[in-house]
């Protein structure tokens, strides 16, 4: 699954640690999601969508 987390974060000038704190996960988890190594659960994806005021589809895209 692809995502725009890194771009969205950079646009807001947030660090990985700041985003991790806001989503209540570890910085390592944010790093893994940005690199596409870990797919977040639906609740976490919704949380990210609420934080960025976007829909889930605008942040996460299926690669197929």
């Amino acid at each position: 699954m692809k995502n725009k987390l890194k771009v969205l974060r950079a646009e807001r000038d947030w660090t990985q640690a700041q985003l991790a704190d806001a989503l209540e996960v570890s910085r390592q988890t944010i790093n893994a999601i940005e690199k596409g190594k870990f797919d977040p659960s639906l609740p976490l994806a919704f949380k990210a969508a609420r934080l960025f005021k976007l829909s889930i589809e605008e942040i996460f895209q299926d690669e197929e």
Binding site: R12, W14, A17, Q18, L19, D21, A22, E24, V25, L51
Partner: peptide, 16 residues
Amino acid sequence: MTNDVNNARSKPTDWQ
């Protein structure tokens, strides 16, 4: 919300 995120590192969050 943006300010909340920017200030998030100033102290440990409840989760941490």
